[in-house]
Design a protein around this nucleic acid. Structure first.
Lengths: 218, 218
DNA sequence: CAAAATATTTAGATGAGCCTAAAAAATTGA
DNA sequence: TCAATTTTTTAGGCTCATCTAAATATTTTG
């Protein structure tokens, strides 16, 4: 079995490899894990020895097949627990990440599967991120950043990047929640900020925010 | 904050001090934690430095007020999670202990309290052990071991000692579950084993088993 | 393309929690 | 009671995951 810390490294590598083309760098991992690069090097050697990653010094990391499967299992647990916290215990979507970071390390396949069933096999977590199924299949929705919509175009909010409290609380207060229908009314040339029509009400968001809102076209 | 391991020591001290008169010995703790006595001594120094226990060398340990409160918080979490696993996820009472050992270390008072509410403020866990309330108050039921009943006397199964799979599975199969009404028909002089009438059906149990079944008189 | 800057790895150290072996204190019992 | 036994503590080491500082490799840039 892998330690909590090894699991966190795997999860971080998985996360970074989604947006990075090619291998994940030591420094990127160090930043993500909030440790020094030297510590990352040590851990990479360990994970490589366990065949969870392929690692060649100075050239970055990639998850092996088993490493990928392990990472996905952790992500699955994390997201299922987030659904539980929001759907069953009434937490807000901005406060579940931290708790799920702890719950994701609980080891019991039976628990994970029963939780999945209890929650009715949800497809996405409260932030719209896909929940891998028992076989590790991740069904990614074809979302695009809100910034890709042009004036007059419409979409439905399908996911939100960033796990922190701040942005999510803000979106909540302004009713920019999952499944809201959005129409772009106007994009300010000056700074790219957007005037939106969300479920009948007008809203104004900065580019920074719009970049973090993912929509399904249509 | 206390580490997982510190929490496990506190829990073990709490558990042992319930049955031990006076202080808990180093060797008892070592047995409970499945480590060497020398390791216990090290940890006791650490816990004492944190004022979680009072410890004088060669004289054993006692929980301080803060240590007691911390222990009870862990026990509360453990037992709430056990209720969740049985009531909501359909686990058997014999398989929840191990999983709850992991869940009990999740740090979030809000989570604990919401779980408590979600479960409808249960008073006892699936083994009949009392669940401390938010203020740390433990309402112990006045149970006695089944071996204390004489032929002709009756009681209701209120709790079961021992967390392991084996006994609990056995009791399950023989319908010796919480809240069953029991009447003692006969006690064999030879070995103390008991002939019982449980919810209308006859059962035969060894002393060893009867010692682990706790009943409420009446 | 070579020097400077940056990224990564190596080397050696630290603290937590564990170990074994030896020393010291407490308990038992002849 | 005092010698033998048991319990507990001390001393010194180990592994894991981290750190800092120094060395080495890669990348950038003048």
């Amino acid at each position: 079995m892998n330690s909590h810390i090894e699991e966190n490294y795997l999860k971080a590598i998985y996360k970074l490899s989604l947006s990075a083309k090619g291998a994940v760098s030591t420094s990127a991992l160090a930043a993500e894990m909030e440790v020094q690069a030297a510590s990352v090097t040590d851990m990479l050697k360990k994970l490589a020895a366990k065949k969870l990653i392929s690692y060649e010094r100075y050239y970055g990391v990639q998850l092996s097949k088993t490493g990928m499967a392990a990472s996905i299992r952790i992500v699955r647990k994390h997201r299922l627990w987030e659904v539980f916290l929001v759907e069953k215990l009434g937490f807000g979507w901005g406060e579940v990440h931290e708790i799920a970071e702890q719950l994701e390390h609980v080891q019991s396949e039976k628990l994970t599967d029963r939780l999945d069933a209890f929650l009715n096999y949800p497809q996405v977590d409260p932030h719209g991120d896909p929940i891998p199924d028992k076989e590790g299949v991740v069904r990614q929705q074809p979302t695009i950043a809100l910034t890709n919509l042009k004036p007059g175009e419409r979409g439905r909010i399908a996911a939100v990047k960033h796990d922190g409290q701040g942005l999510l609380d803000y979106l909540d207060r302004h009713n920019l929640v999952l499944d809201s229908d959005v129409e772009v009314l106007e994009i300010l040339e000056f700074d790219g900020s957007m005037q939106l029509l969300v479920e009948g009400k007008e809203h104004f968001v900065s580019v920074k925010i719009a970049e973090n809102i993912l929509v399904l076209r249509g």
